[in-house]
Structure formats: C-alpha cells, structure tokens
C-alpha cells in the first residue's frame, strides 16, 4: 500500500509547471473506504405523511446518516479536491472532456431522490426527472448559482445548468414530501467522489501533485475526526493534503468517529 501524507512544496511547483505541458502530465488515483467507528446506528423509518398510498409502500428510511449494518461502511460521504479561492483548479484529464457539457440525472423515484448525492462539474446541467406516479417539486438551495424551485410533474423532466462552482454541497428538497432531501455538489473540476453503500470511494485520473482533499457528510458537515492507520487524527475542516503520483494511492480503511455526527 503506497501512502504519503506529507505535502512537498517541490512537488506542488512541479505540478504547476507540468500542467502546462500535457505530455509530461502524469495521472494517479486515490481510493479508500470510510467506516463508522462504532455500532452502526439503525436506519430510522420515515413517517410518510403525504401521498401515503404511493410513497408509503417503499419502506423509506432517513438517509441523513447511512451506515451499512453489515460492514459499517459509511455511505454518501463526499470527497473533492479543495481549491483555495484564486487558485487554479486541477487540470482535467482528457477523458473528462467528453462529459464537459453533459446532462447529469437526478430522479424523483420512489419518493426519494436518486442519487442521494449528485455531483456536477461547473458547466454541466442537471436533469431533474420524476419517475413517480405522484407530482414532486425540486428545490435546490445553491448559494452561488441561482437557487431554483420547480414543480416536476409525474413522468416529466426539467433541466437546469450550473455555471459556477459551489463552495459547499447545496440542499435539494421537495416541499410536497418534506422527508425528501438530497445534495448537489458543483465543483469546477471533475474530481468529486461519493462513497458507496460499503463506504468505498475512488477518484480517478487525478493530475500528479499534491492536492488538498476535502471530506464532507451531510450530518457532520466536514468530516474532521478520523482514525487513519490506527492513529486518531483531526482533519481540520475535513481537509487532508495528499500527494498523488502515477498509479494508485490507497488510503485503506478510515474510521470516522461517531462524534462527527452528534448535535
């Protein structure tokens, strides 16, 4: 397992220089697995108060803190490369070129949003679908981009373009069904990952160099109290500097302290 936690100024400079010459650019990936460091909390069923005959049949649960009961995997943690205001975002690998202006889908499906965290690169559009038999509305409280609130009739879709990066994930909600909540992430680079149901994440084709990676979860905000390699660590504002080299950097299992999620 290759691991490097130190930030090397020389590498950063190298990276800035190399960003201009494409041939010299090397790409690496970052992966890891986030687990809940305690007894996994039980999923809390949602009290369906609207469209009960339709929404009541899906066994909906609160997704604010989703821990896999089998392996303690922590889902829906968002990981992105943090770019300080005024700094240039990391160069995008040519493979991302095709998806530059793509439409990314979020669906009102079975009275919840799918996916729970949707990630966009600035310039991409969000396509908001409604696959349900009932009407929904989708309200997105972005801070930099214009906030929206549209009704989305059954079987229909609407489209909204996101031109600018958002510093933090924006809440997506439905006023008709108050339990429906999800998150929209907009960054001006493609390096954003969301942990899956087992807590795994991977950022591929990251330009070599030292980057600040930021970890965020909806209930905790920034994930700052973690145990890495058996060592309790504080990631201030959920940030950690890592050096990406050609090949794969595997952070292994990162234990996330339950204290991150308390009131």
């Amino acid at each position: 397992m290759m691991r490097s936690w130190t930030c090397l100024a020389a590498t950063a400079i190298f990276c800035l220089l190399s960003a201009t010459s494409v041939e010299a650019q090397q790409w690496g990936s970052l992966k890891g697995r986030l687990v809940y460091d305690g007894t996994p909390p039980k999923a809390i069923p949602i009290n369906v108060t609207k469209d009960v005959e339709f929404c009541g049949k899906f066994g909906l649960v609160d997704e604010e803190l989703t821990v896999n009961p089998e392996n303690a995997g922590l889902a829906n943690v968002v990981i992105w490369i943090y770019v300080k205001t005024g700094d240039a975002p990391p160069a995008a690998h040519p493979l991302f070129e095709e998806a530059k202006g793509a439409r990314i889908k979020i669906d009102n499906k079975m009275c919840r949003f799918e996916p729970h965290v949707v990630t966009l690169r600035a310039g991409q559009s969000l396509e908001i679908h409604n696959s349900d038999a009932v009407g929904h509305n989708t309200k997105i409280d972005t801070f930099v981009n214009p906030p929206i609130n549209y009704t989305v009739p059954s079987g229909q879709k609407i489209e909204q373009k996101y031109e600018q990066a958002e510093r933090l994930p924006a809440a997506v909600s439905c006023s008709i069904h108050p339990w429906m909540k999800s998150w929209l992430v907009v960054q001006d680079h493609p390096y954003v990952a969301v942990t899956d149901k087992d807590g795994n994440f991977e950022l591929k084709n990251v330009p070599a160099g030292t980057w600040t990676f930021q970890f965020w979860q909806e209930r905790s905000g920034f994930v700052d109290q973690v145990t890495v390699d058996g060592q309790a660590t504080e990631w201030k504002r959920g940030r950690v500097d890592l050096e990406i080299k050609a090949g794969e950097l595997d952070l292994g299992t990162i234990k996330v302290a339950p204290e991150n999620f308390t009131d």
Binding site: T49, A133, G135, N137, T151, S154, S175, I176
Partner: peptide, 23 residues
C-alpha cells in the same frame, strides 16, 4: 388537483390552505 400543477398537495383539495402545514 392534478399532478402536473400539483396545487392541491399543499393548498388542500378544497384550497383551504390545509394540505401542507408543517413546513
């Protein structure tokens, strides 16, 4: 009352404003 305009969901079937009162 239809599911394109979706008014009744919040304003109530009789439009008395009683469809969604906890927001």
């Amino acid at each position: 009352s239809g599911n394109v305009a979706n008014c009744a969901q919040c304003h109530g079937t009789l439009a008395l404003g009683d469809g969604q009162v906890t927001d």
